[in-house]
Computed example of a mutant assay.
Amino acid sequence: MTAQRQQRNISGSRPLFRRVFAAIALAALMMPPVVSRAATTGRIITDRFSGLAIDGFDPVSYFVDGQAQLGLPDYEAAQGGVVWRFRNEGNRASFLAHPEVYGPQFGGYDPTDVARGVTVAGNPRFFAVIEERLFLFSREESRDAFKADPARYLARAEARWPALQDDLPE
């Protein structure tokens, strides 16, 4: 390739690159801003994509049905800075009347990890209802250890939770 052709190819590609870059930048500026469906907080386990507390599981179903069940979009409620889903209107009303009873303890963080001084998100599928309170665990082994001696883990977790909670984003 001659020097003259090389120069023509280099100078010819720059305007094209600038036009493509300008078009992309303009398109990005014209896009509507992304609006979150829910205000989220680090103090309650919330799905970062959907904004739903405890991945959209119905917190009341753990008590009523004894199992983890997904809530429905028709029965949502905002409480504690996050959006909760429920299976039916009765569960929704019960939760709104007593969120401190039905909401997961430690914001849904694994109490065995909280007892160790760290915050690890609980999985809504690994749960236990102990002393009329809901606890979520990050893994089955944590749940089994907790259920074997809940008093030991609860004493440690409750002592460490205030400091850990202060470090979580609001």
Rank of each mutant, 00 (worst) to 15 (best):
T40P: 01
T40G: 05
T41I: 00
T41Y: 09
G42M: 08
G42Q: 04
R43K: 15
R43M: 12
R43A: 12
I44C: 12
I44E: 12
I44A: 13
T46P: 04
T46L: 04
D47I: 11
R48S: 13
R48D: 14
S50T: 15
S50M: 07
G51Q: 04
G51D: 10
G51M: 12
L52E: 15
A53P: 04
I54T: 05
I54F: 04
D55F: 00
G56T: 11
G56S: 10
F57D: 12
P59H: 06
V60G: 06
V60R: 06
S61R: 02
S61Y: 03
S61Q: 01
Y62Q: 09
Y62F: 12
Y62R: 09
Y62S: 14
F63W: 03
F63V: 05
V64M: 02
V64Y: 11
D65I: 00
Q67H: 01
Q67W: 00
A68F: 02
A68H: 08
L70W: 00
L72M: 10
P73V: 05
P73T: 02
D74M: 03
D74G: 02
Y75H: 14
E76M: 05
E76I: 05
E76P: 00
A77Q: 07
A77L: 11
A77Y: 08
A77M: 04
A77D: 04
A78Y: 02
Q79D: 10
Q79I: 02
G81C: 07
G81T: 05
G81P: 07
W84G: 09
W84A: 10
W84D: 08
R85S: 12
R85D: 03
R85I: 01
F86I: 07
F86G: 07
F86V: 06
F86P: 09
R87L: 12
R87P: 00
R87Y: 00
R87N: 05
N88H: 07
N91H: 15
N91I: 02
R92Q: 15
R92N: 11
A93I: 01
A93L: 12
A93C: 01
S94R: 13
F95A: 10
A97I: 02
A97D: 14
H98W: 09
H98M: 13
P99R: 07
E100V: 01
E100K: 05
E100S: 04
Y102M: 14
G103P: 02
G103M: 07
P104T: 05
F106D: 05
F106V: 10
G108L: 04
G108N: 04
Y109I: 05
Y109G: 03
Y109L: 01
Y109M: 00
D113E: 14
V114F: 10
V114E: 08
A115I: 05
R116F: 07
R116G: 12
R116A: 14
G117C: 09
V118T: 15
V118E: 15
